[in-house]
């Protein structure tokens, strides 16, 4: 148990170091941007004179030296304050906090679904190696892996929402329907189907390919041969010995790819009007909302680190011997 605690402590220290670096990096990055946020705000008010723009700059500290702004920002982040969005006139943390559940719901569901289905399909293909079902799965995986997710999303919504009318094409819930309790959960679930499937499909393909390859490799190893020689049943060999060992590299890759899953949510949330931080990120970039953008960077990086820890836990579940790996 001590090993696990140490592992987590080490992870946390490393995560903190990475986060601080990201904060500084991002701060410098967005300040290299050509836009002046005070000007944007003034523009949106329909008129702009010098006094108004200067007022806005002073109000949001944009007239301070860059180093001072950075110091202020890092200091505040350490205290859990992600700053204030001048564009939306609200604390950044409040804005992110509202959007975060939708994104977590979408990406976590897609992550688990893609992992489960991917491993299942990959294992099935490996067992059936060389038969038509193996080929079908391989071709499907190849296609899914080559398809841009935003396009998959568009085509699925064209088919299932526009043409067939089975599922809602966009949004998080039926607007103004006022559902509560179970009805609300079902409503959200219906809205989730298309975005989750779209996001999961791409990663499922990756995991299926990896699982298949990994299982085929493990099969040829000595301990499997030994198990076979001991006369264990084929199903038992495939699940207990082959799959269990073959799945480890899949989980490692899944942990690394989690970050891309979060990035992919920008596209999916744009296509399906999903009210999460992916959409927020894109809106913030277009509106030059520096503070929100910095906040999203931090939060998505934290999400990636959390996904990594999650995969570590999965790793531990499947193979209790491995605790201090990597």
């Amino acid at each position: 148990m001590l090993g696990l605690a140490q592992l987590f402590a080490g992870r946390l220290v490393k995560a903190a170091a990475i986060l601080i670096t990201i904060v500084v990096l991002n701060f410098l990055l967005v300040h290299a941007a050509p836009g002046d946020p005070a000007m944007v705000m003034a523009g949106e008010a329909g008129a702009a004179d010098e006094q108004f723009v200067a007022q806005l700059r002073a109000q949001f500290g944009l007239d301070r030296p860059l180093t001072e702004q950075l110091a202020t920002y890092v200091g505040k982040v350490v205290q859990g304050d992600l700053g204030y969005s001048y564009r939306q006139q609200r604390p950044v943390w409040d804005i992110l906090w509202e959007r975060l559940p939708a994104t977590l719901l979408l990406t976590l569901t897609a992550f688990l679904l893609s992992l489960a289905l991917g491993v299942l399909l990959g294992a099935f293909a490996a067992v059936q190696v060389g038969r038509w079902s193996d080929s079908a799965i391989t071709v499907l995986a190849l296609l899914a892996y080559a398809t841009p997710i935003y396009w998959t999303g568009l085509m699925l919504s064209l088919l299932f929402a526009v043409e067939l009318g089975w599922l809602p094409a966009f949004g998080y819930e039926t607007i103004g329907a006022g559902y509560t309790g179970l009805d609300h959960a079902l409503d959200v679930a219906r809205h989730m189907v298309l975005p989750v499937v779209t996001l999961a499909l791409f990663y499922m393909a990756a995991y299926a390919r990896l699982t298949r390859a990994s299982m085929l490799e493990v099969r040829g190893q000595d301990f499997v041969k030994t198990a076979r020689a001991k006369g264990l049943g084929p199903l038992r060999i495939e699940t207990r010995h082959v799959l269990r060992n073959a799945i480890l590299p899949v989980i490692t890759v899944a942990g690394i790819q989690a970050g891309q899953l979060v990035g992919g949510s920008i596209l999916i949330e744009t296509v399906f009007a999903w009210p999460g931080i992916g959409r927020l990120a894109f809106e913030a970039v277009l509106q030059r909302d520096y503070q929100v953008l910095l906040g999203i960077f931090l939060v998505t990086s934290v999400m990636v680190i959390l996904f990594n820890i999650l995969t570590d836990l999965l790793y531990g579940l499947i193979d209790p011997r491995i605790q201090v790996a990597r």
């Binding site: 990475i18 990201i22 050509p34 970050g259 990035g263 970039v285 953008l293 999203i296 990636v304 680190i305």
Partner: peptide
């Protein structure tokens, strides 16, 4: 590798 790479690409292109 920790920074979500698509987010980073979006930000880089948008900013520059």
């Amino acid at each position: 590798q920790t920074i979500p790479n698509f987010v980073l690409a979006v930000v880089l292109v948008a900013i520059f």
